[in-house]
Write a protein that binds this DNA or RNA. Structure first.
Lengths: 164, 164
DNA sequence: CATAATTATTAGCCGTGTCTAACAATCAAA
DNA sequence: TTTGATTGTTAGACACGGCTAATAATTATG
């Protein structure tokens, strides 16, 4: 059973298109070129050409003048991208205290360049922050205090809490 | 006093070149095209052409067949990039527990796409983590425990530490 | 159902950033 | 100081990903 190197690495651009298809096809079955061009802020020809490339890689199917849809493989890849997007957005919003919209924006840029390891660790970090009742649930709160007052919050100055 | 929009936004590529010049000229005065092509893993013509573009923007000076150097403005821009690089590397290494080399690699990708706000917050976050004796100095430790054991460390299960 | 409005495609251009091949300058060493 | 090795530049090709203009298919409507 030869495991061939499928060599399916995408450019940031192609990932972006793939993601858009996944997002727009949530619910509906049909993704129109127009919808994509509107969402992504590019022209329709750009979408057409991206769809062509993705279809050559069998990540999408696109009948001419008709709608675009993901193949199972395409859905898998897109799912992965969206997963990155979500985790990054959470990190920016929940850990760094950046507003949702700006957090999304940031995630959009970084989701295409971050390494698998970086991604995994970042996700785990957010998880940890939220799960740990001490460093966790309150860390964002304390961090916000720090952001606002430019000094450590009172409870951080508390002594005697040994942690190892 | 009219503040004109200097419109000096660089592409990831150009930032990368700029950064390399700054790094290589630390100490020495001369940066050779060869050094840059070696460091960046591109061919010499690529460096020449980048240098030309940067010189047109007055970020570098490049006498033909001679060395390349930063203008004061170029040094400023490069400094900013390096600053981003450093902060990101610290975040990956110190907060996420990624080894130095891999952390650098990750930083290299992200430093060119992260927003000023994201950058600022991230830097503050690292600062905070290190400064706060509770959530701080020990958070990385607890996080590492979490990474290794896939569950919260003992001291995170401690109750009664109110933080607000 | 004919035609207007909308949506999609094709063709072709452009800027960026890379490369190779060929040539030119500089440097080092005999 | 001449010449070979090294370094640097120029010219030209190419992939990518965007755009506009022209054309074609689809859809909506009167």
């Amino acid at each position: 059973m030869v495991k061939q190197d499928t060599q399916r690495e995408q450019t940031a651009s192609m990932e972006h298109y793939l993601e858009a298809i996944a997002i727009l096809s949530a619910g509906k079955r049909a993704v129109r070129v127009k919808q994509m061009s509107d969402l992504l802020g590019v022209t329709m020809p750009s979408v057409t050409s991206a769809a062509k490339k993705l279809s050559e890689q069998e990540l999408t199917e696109h009948e001419k003048y008709r709608h675009i849809k993901l193949t199972p493989e395409g859905a898998r890849v897109a799912g992965d991208i969206i997963h990155r997007h979500t985790a990054l957005t959470r990190f920016f919003a929940e850990a760094l205290g950046i507003d949702q919209a700006t957090a999304e924006e940031g995630a959009c840029k970084i989701e295409h360049v971050i390494s698998p390891l970086g991604m995994e660790r970042l996700a785990k970090f957010v998880e940890f922050m939220e799960a740990c009742p001490m460093g966790g649930a309150n860390l964002p709160g304390r961090y916000e205090y720090y952001l606002e007052h430019a000094e450590l919050p009172p409870d951080c100055r508390m002594k005697g809490v040994k942690t190892r």
